[in-house]
Write a protein that binds this DNA or RNA. Structure first.
Lengths: 268, 268
DNA sequence: ACGCGACATTGATCTGAGTCAATTTATATC
DNA sequence: GATATAAATTGACTCAGATCAATGTCGCGT
């Protein structure tokens, strides 16, 4: 793999790796695709922020967009940094978290291919973003909202849709953290990953977990040990298989859903 | 005060009480205030969604806006209802929550004077909104975003700012629920109310709690008993006074902040 | 002033998840 | 393939907060 990784908080790749991100083309390339078409800087297709967007708008975005490459465990931005851009993940996985002074950590979200994060506007980032695996991301400066608000209200509108979606997931996650048992949390978490895989057009079941148990624990408000025990128990109860720590086969998704929603008594 | 209120999905008052909402004027009344000025349907002043907004935009909003009255314990909308409008609270307090089939409840937010909630866009509401006290609210249909996106991108932009603010509070609340102790949660909750009071131009300290202990518990992921015990202990430790259950005097806000942030060892 | 009902507080006990400590299993390196 | 290292699992024990059960307090209508 002849990929040149660059050190730095925002390693910018001029060229892309050959296999991993095959159909990615150079940013700023504009094919003559007619009135509707992609920007060319990513291969997200229908998941793209620009999917089915007016060509004029797309080229405005393409002009300010840049495609960034990160290694695993890179910090993309830190809590308190000036919020200057939103990111759309093209490949890889990202976690965002907040830390307490004594080291307690809460992962407030995971992001995958097609996801947008880093919403900000005249504000600092409220959390730190760190890559879990090597990442390719499209960076959109938020100043573009001012610039494009007149000519392309579509852009604001789409970002708003993403924010509303994120708000809805927060409501769900707050319910999970405030009121669900360990078993229910793990079931809910796995199902939410599965649902998101489906929305990306991937199969719901052989589920790949790019994050470790510690990250899962810090996301759903448990300890590593409790996450592990809950998983083992779900496996023992025939609800899922764990061929390897990073792979989950959902064997009885509906029963899992029942547990996630608190319909199944804990003893079962 | 000649005010006309519309009936709605839920109990709408025809007339306003004389003292409570004194300076509220008729919606759709347009005073000749020059290029910048309020819509006239509320007395929120600088807290208003329309504060310092172009007069043309304001009158567009005033045209579609309507002012609603609710009694205490009214349901404004339910989880799953078509999301058609956002609300700005002019007076009173609202809680929004999600329920689990077995009755467990998570209050995902409280809203007060000046707050906007009910963000939606081609989506159903993700939660139920219920008033805690009598409420006066300004209702803005979300279709206006489509209508005004060209002529008044300002409106989208302002809603987006509110959403970003809400996202930031969700990150904080997820940290609270996922990683804080009972004592830290109660301290954080009281301080967040205090901060919000300040932002409304009210004093930070004699804090009025319009919600009961059960609501607080369902918001910060505890039981009534634990909330009560934590409050009592904070009082015993001289950090606050509780002249009555609904009134909190913050005696040592900085020490309270230390507890909220986990800087003070639990034993203290 | 009285009594009722809702809400808040306090106390005693229980338990689900945390903590501490190995042990096992994957992954990476040579 | 052998070995080192990190991650995951499992087990024993503890504890913060839940549960169950009174008791106390406030507001309100009569």
């Amino acid at each position: 793999m002849a990929i040149s990784y660059r050190a730095g908080p925002v390693a910018v790749g001029r060229r892309l790796g050959p296999e991993e991100f095959v159909s990615v083309r150079t940013a700023h390339t504009h094919d003559p695709l007619g009135d509707w078409g992609p920007c060319g800087a990513c291969d997200l297709g229908p998941l793209s922020f620009c999917a089915n967007m007016g060509r004029g708008t797309v080229s405005s975005l393409a002009r300010v967009q840049c495609t960034l490459r990160y290694d695993a465990q890179d910090t993309m931005f830190r809590e308190g940094d000036d919020g200057t851009a939103v990111y759309v993940l093209i490949a890889g996985a990202v976690k965002v978290y907040k830390l307490m002074p004594d080291g307690r950590r809460q992962i407030t979200g995971f992001f995958f291919r097609g996801d947008m994060f880093g919403f900000c506007l005249e504000t600092a980032y409220a959390y730190t973003a760190e890559t879990i695996s090597p990442v390719l991301a499209c960076r959109l400066p938020m100043t573009l909202l001012r610039t494009l608000s007149q000519t392309a209200p579509e852009v604001q509108h789409r970002i708003m849709l993403r924010m509303i979606g994120k708000l809805a997931t927060f409501h769900d996650h707050v319910l999970l953290l405030g009121r669900k048992t360990a078993r229910e949390r793990v079931a809910s978490f796995l199902l939410s990953l599965s649902d998101r895989a489906c929305r990306r057009g991937e199969p719901p079941s052989p589920l790949v977990l790019p994050m470790g148990r510690a990250d899962i624990a810090d996301h759903i408000g448990l300890t590593v040990e409790t996450v592990s025990r809950a998983m083992t128990r779900l496996k023992r109860d025939g609800l899922l298989d764990l061929p390897s720590p990073g792979l989950v086969v959902l064997r009885r998704p509906k029963a899992l859903r029942g547990i996630a929603d608190g319909l199944t008594p804990e003893a079962a």
